[in-house]
Design a protein around this nucleic acid. Structure first.
Length: 713
DNA sequence: AGCACGCCGACT
DNA sequence: GTCGGCGTGCTC
């Protein structure tokens, strides 16, 4: 029968041949000398490995034996490849995939009762996963209820052979301690620098003044380098990194620091990462990817503008640069500097608990550095036809017209698509649920009010502040306003900076520079004036952070304007009675953050409480809630239906746009879990355990969990 | 997560 | 009688 093809059964003969070939292949694999039992290292024959599998249910170490030929190279921290998922057949291991991992420890013996598979491969001798980095990644994974492998993926860049083969530069000796520069603007500024240079670990929240922040940050880095320690600085985007990079280059010359940003490309990024890991360079500045940068002898962590949502990583488990750096500082006993023109509520809490000290300028100094800020009413239309065409209040119109004679004028307009929040028609106090203080939403065409957090309806809403019983939803026409503005000043060039194209700088010549928040170019000689338009659209977003975030965006724009002594002026088009507006006019970011914090505490909002969101189908959420062992006093808010999209991303809310399509047409729901301050770790642990239980039992579709969600109303 | 084992319906 | 569904369990 063999070799006599039966006409009509060609295919079956072919299949048999194929089968025979497969069997031969298997036999050869078994007989291959490399696959047989190999001698194991005599000393520390066990290698503990973290495998690169993100699944929560295998978030643990696995032990492998170390073959003699890998004994020397198989040091803690190296990248390895191991066979994972094999099964036992007649006492032999069969199958199993080659997966990447890191060797974390060499041991005399394993506590695993079975026999150990050998390490398959050590990829190189480079010890990329240092003990400190491993501890950090473990802490971050725990804090965010994620797996170690997920965090390692964010923390250790992919291997690049060419970068790894090249030697890193020789380290330079520590520089001399820098002079205080413009830190003299803050009463405690010099003392902070001195402490850094002396090897201490001061912790500060810094309300930076306009002008000079990059130089001030650079001096903080230089001071800690002078103490023989290293520094990590994370900034929200590439243009800010470039500014600090330039300031450091000027202060320290080349070779003592490096910049790490996403746009570098894999080879150069890994080359720089290795320079840090190998101790060639001790200071790094960069965007959020730099938050894990392996700086040895960490002396200082710093975050710039920590309220910017770009500090949140977009990959699971969505760590936030500020919080990762705080974990690092605690671990390393390093100094902390959280700075920005604005002060976040999270920073205010660090001040409130006494964990950090304030680095604030006194009122006179702040007045000197800041531009003159005035409000313009949206109802106060100018008589001038051009102003009417631009729909500008008369004050804004005249300020812009006057300033255009002296230099560029910045016009900040919100991006289209901000979702307005329901607010009192009279005093514009946001409409909140009287049970849990979540934001109220219009859920259906009937106009029924419903809480976005707990889902309770509210038939009889009236304003807590002024007693009015009517609501309004704000409407946005931002982009059009900007276009009309260009027509209103026909002789002036109009430049735009926004989503499509972001300008880094504009020259010191008269021009209208229309920019969306976060995309404002730096004007070389400072803007002569800035108009902050449509404050309502910003303040009216359905977002817990709307007030804080709006003030932050205003401050960042106003901070690019010349000081009041130099004739710099800002007009903010918004109701002067509102707290963010007052804080801008008085240039008092710290005061605003303190008040906001007190209010959050009263309403039990983050960061005074800790929250996590759980998203999934109704059944899977219910299932998770039966499995979870919640910390004492935890609140369960919801579930409520949510629109499509990725709950992990920044899609809805803070800084993002969209967020329409609510109503749960895809069947997804969300609950918010709220715990008392100090119980965040317990909550994360409980969520992870419940998720693992759900995955193991397969009792329902898995849910998605996010700690510190950004998109809560 | 993958991947294999194991026990019940419609087809050669 | 077999091919194949996805429930349950493990991976050093």
């Amino acid at each position: 029968m063999n070799g006599t093809p039966d006409p009509g059964s060609d295919s079956s003969a072919g299949e048999q041949l194929e089968l025979v070939r497969l069997e031969l292949k298997k036999a050869r694999a078994r007989a291959r000398p490399g696959a047989g039992p190999k001698a194991t290292a005599r000393h520390l024959p066990v290698a503990r490995v973290v495998v690169n599998r993100s699944a929560l249910v295998i978030d643990q170490f696995f032990d492998y034996s170390v073959p003699v030929d890998l004994d020397e190279i198989a040091q803690p921290g190296v990248r390895v490849r191991v066979r994972f998922g094999a099964r036992m057949v007649e006492g032999r291991r069969e199958g199993g995939n080659l997966v990447d991992g890191f060797l974390v420890q060499r041991l005399e013996r394993s506590d695993y009762p079975g026999s150990l598979a050998p390490l398959s491969q050590v990829l190189s001798a480079e010890r990329v996963l240092t003990p400190a980095l491993l501890r950090l990644c473990r802490a971050v994974a725990d804090r965010y209820a994620g797996s170690l492998a997920d965090v390692l993926q964010l923390a250790v860049p992919p291997k690049h052979n060419r970068a790894e083969a090249a030697p890193s530069p020789e380290p330079l000796p520590a520089p001399a301690a820098p002079g205080p520069g413009s830190w003299t603007r803050y009463p405690l500024g010099e003392a902070f620098l001195t402490a850094l240079a002396a090897g201490e670990a001061p912790r500060a929240v810094w309300a930076a003044l306009p002008g000079g922040w990059a130089g001030e940050l650079a001096r903080a880095v230089a001071a800690v380098l002078a103490s023989g320690r290293g520094a990590v600085v994370v900034l929200p985007e590439g243009r800010a990194v470039a500014q600090l990079d330039a300031a450091l280059l000027e202060l320290l010359g080349a070779g003592r620091h490096l910049a790490l940003t996403a746009e570098l490309g894999p080879e150069e990024r890994y080359r720089r990462w290795l320079a840090l890991s190998r101790g060639s360079v001790r200071a790094v500045v960069g965007t959020r990817a730099a938050m894990f940068a392996p700086v040895a002898d960490l002396g200082l962590v710093a975050v710039w503008d920590d309220g910017d949502d770009r500090h949140s990583d977009l990959n699971a488990p969505f760590p936030h640069a500020r919080d990762v750096l705080l974990l690092r500082a605690a671990e390393a006993g390093a100094a902390v500097l959280i700075g920005g023109l604005a002060v976040t509520v999270e920073s205010a809490q660090l001040l409130h608990t006494g964990w950090a000290r304030p680095l604030l300028a006194d009122r006179a100094e702040a007045r000197r550095a800041a531009p003159l800020v005035r409000t313009g009413s949206e109802r106060d239309q100018a008589n001038d036809a051009g102003a009417r065409a631009a729909r500008l209040p008369s004050h804004a119109w005249s300020v812009a017209k006057e300033a255009l004679a002296r230099g560029p004028v910045l016009v900040q307009v919100p991006r289209r698509g901000y979702v307005p929040r329901l607010a009192c028609v009279r005093c514009r106090e946001p409409a909140r649920c009287r049970h849990c203080a979540g934001p109220l939403e219009l859920r259906d065409a009937e106009g029924a009010l419903c809480c976005d957090w707990c889902g309770r309806p509210d038939q009889d809403w009236h304003c807590q502040e002024c007693g009015a019983n009517r609501l309004r939803a704000q409407v946005v026409g931002a982009r059009r306003t900007a276009e009309e503005l260009g027509r209103a000043f026909p002789l002036v060039p109009v430049r735009t900076s926004g989503r499509g194209e972001v300008l880094a700088t504009v020259p010191d010549v008269p021009a209208l520079v229309v920019a969306t928040p976060g995309a404002e170019p730096v004007a070389e000689g400072g803007y002569a004036a800035a108009l902050l338009l449509d404050g309502w659209a910003l303040l009216g977003r359905a977002d817990l952070h709307a007030g804080e975030d709006t003030l932050r965006r205003w401050l960042n724009a106003a901070g690019l304007v010349r000081s009041r002594e130099q004739g710099g002026a800002v007009v903010v088009v918004a109701d002067e009675g509102l707290r963010p507006v007052q804080a801008l006019v008085r240039w008092d970011p710290a005061g605003f953050a303190g008040t906001e914090l007190a209010e959050r505490a009263e309403l039990r909002f983050p960061p005074v409480s800790r929250m996590a969101s759980v998203t999934g189908t109704s059944a899977s959420i219910e299932d998770l809630l039966t499995l979870i062992r919640l910390p004492e006093g935890a609140d369960v808010l919801g579930p409520v239906a949510v629109g499509g999209g990725r709950p992990g991303g920044r899609g809805e809310g803070r800084g993002g746009q969209g967020g329409d399509g609510r109503g749960g047409q895809d069947g997804l729901e969300r609950v918010l879990l709220r715990v008392a301050p100090g119980r965040g770790a317990e909550l994360a642990t409980a969520l992870k355990a419940a998720q693992v239980a759900q995955l193991v039992r397969r009792s329902a579709e898995p849910v998605r969990v996010r700690i510190d969600p950004l998109d809560i109303g």
